[in-house]
C-alpha cells in the first residue's frame, strides 16, 4: 500500500519536490499502479535467473589507446554553470 508518507519518502530519495496537492494525486495514482504490479506474485520465479537484458550480452573490452574525443571547448560551450575550465556546482558539504 502506497500512502502519503511513502510518497513523501520516495520523493525525498528521488529528489523531487512535491506540493501537498501532488502528494495527494501521486499517492492515489501510484497505489493503483503498484497494486496492479502485484499480479507478478502469481508467478513462481523461485529458480528463475533474472534477465537484465533481452538478449545475451557479453563484456566488451578494448585496448586502452588514446583516441580523439570531444574537444573541451565544445563541451563547455553548452555547460549550464562553469568557471574557467571547470563545471561550477553548488556546495556539496
Amino acid at each position: 500500500m502506497i500512502d502519503k508518507e511513502t510518497v513523501k519518502h520516495v520523493a525525498k530519495i528521488a529528489r523531487i519536490n512535491l506540493t501537498e496537492e501532488e502528494i495527494d494525486k501521486f499517492s492515489r495514482q501510484l497505489n493503483d499502479i503498484v497494486e496492479d504490479f502485484k499480479i507478478l506474485d502469481e508467478l513462481d520465479v523461485e529458480n528463475v535467473a533474472p534477465s537484465f537484458h533481452p538478449i545475451r550480452t557479453e563484456n566488451v573490452l578494448r585496448e586502452d589507446e588514446v583516441k580523439e574525443c570531444l574537444k573541451r571547448e565544445e563541451i563547455f560551450k553548452i555547460a549550464c554553470h562553469k568557471e574557467g575550465d571547470y563545471f561550477k556546482a553548488p556546495k556539496i558539504m
Binding site: F37, L40, D41, L43, V45, V48, A49, P50, S51, F52, P54
Partner: peptide, 9 residues
C-alpha cells in the same frame, strides 16, 4: 527483481 525474473519466463 521479480520483474526481471518474469522477463526471463
Amino acid at each position: 527483481l521479480k520483474a526481471m525474473k518474469a522477463r526471463t519466463l
